[in-house]
Computed example of a mutant assay.
Amino acid sequence: MRDVVPTVRGPEAALRALRDAAPLTHCVTNAVVTGFTANALLSLGASAAMVDIEGEAGIFAGVADGALINLGTPNPQQQASAREIVAATRRWVLDPVAVGMLPVRTALAAELVAARPAIIRGNASEIAAVAGTGAGGRGVDSIDDPDSVHAAAAGLARRSGAVVAVSGATDLVTDGERVARVPGGDPLLTRVTGGGCSLGATMAAFLGVVEPFSAAVAASLVHKQAAESAASVSSGPGSFAVAFLDALATLAPGDLDAARVATRAMAAEGVR
């Protein structure tokens, strides 16, 4: 794990730094998406590892540049690995998949939030459930939108000390004081298993080179633009999945449209 705290950078500089550093990104993620997540990280330019064995996960987290804890399939071994990771590093992302309606992962998410992740990333219904203002969505599908949980996300960020990233048609990222909106992407990404989960891993990769707010914004923008590029050459979800990995690999820092990211102070929006 790097000892120097990365500085704040815009998305273009963040992607350039990631490509230069190839940050080692440690993922304890769900069984459905492991391969796609690893390929997304490799395509982006990071180094991927999926060490979810109790007795090894914490050791590996101590040398990784960023870590992801995804609660999609929280079997006992992954639960133990998650607890080891949060004891070993602060540079980790919590992805609270399907919390609210399922008790094991909901209780574990609350425990992990108390361990102070750098970033909490989820869809709007998942974030509302973690914040205590909602009961979750329909499985992994959201029944809310990011702006409807804006206040809940900001409150969660202030209580937990984490940057909260809410995924949707327009992603919302807040640290409780600032809010950034990242529009774009393509609906085909929601028809590929691992679209959102790989976004959490990308945020973990960016944690190796920038601070959490910048990491979340850069990851959101990268995924939005890669999805748009992939959709333009795809005929359906299958071809899109392959094209998305290619788009992550070919996306250059200078291609990022940072102007589409709108960042404001929370006070300017009247949100507490």
Rank of each mutant, 00 (worst) to 15 (best):
Arg2His: 05
Gly10Leu: 12
Gly10Ala: 11
Pro11Thr: 08
Ala14Gly: 04
Ala17Cys: 03
Ala22Lys: 05
Leu24Gly: 02
Leu24Lys: 06
Cys27His: 06
Val32Gly: 05
Thr34Glu: 11
Ala38Asn: 02
Ala40Asn: 01
Leu42Glu: 01
Ala46Cys: 01
Gly55Pro: 10
Ala61Val: 09
Ala64Cys: 13
Ala64Tyr: 11
Asp65Met: 11
Leu71Trp: 06
Ala87Gly: 10
Ala87Thr: 01
Trp92Phe: 12
Trp92Ile: 10
Val93Thr: 05
Pro96Tyr: 12
Pro96Val: 07
Val97Phe: 10
Gly100His: 06
Leu112His: 05
Ala118Thr: 01
Ile120Asp: 02
Gly122Ser: 02
Asn123Ser: 09
Ser125Phe: 03
Ala129Trp: 00
Ala135Val: 08
Asp144Phe: 01
Ala151Thr: 12
Ala152Met: 09
Ala154Thr: 12
Ala154Leu: 10
Leu156Asp: 05
Leu156Glu: 07
Ser160Ile: 09
Ser160Cys: 13
Ala165Pro: 00
Ala165Met: 10
Val166Asn: 10
Ser167Cys: 15
Ala169Glu: 14
Thr170Ala: 15
Glu177Ala: 15
Val179Asn: 09
Ala180His: 12
Gly184Ser: 15
Pro187Asn: 15
Pro187Phe: 15
Thr190His: 10
Thr193Lys: 13
Gly194Lys: 12
Cys197Gln: 04
Ser198Arg: 11
Gly200His: 13
Ala201Leu: 09
Ala205Gly: 08
Leu207His: 09
Gly208Thr: 14
Pro212Thr: 11
Phe213Ser: 12
Ala215Lys: 07
Leu221His: 10
Ala227Lys: 04
Ala227Thr: 01
Ala227Ser: 15
Glu228Arg: 12
Ala230Tyr: 05
Ala230Ile: 03
Ser232Leu: 08
Ser235Arg: 07
Phe240His: 00
Phe240Arg: 07
Ala252His: 04
Asp257Ala: 08
Ala258Leu: 02
Ala259Trp: 00
Ala267Gln: 04
Ala267Tyr: 01
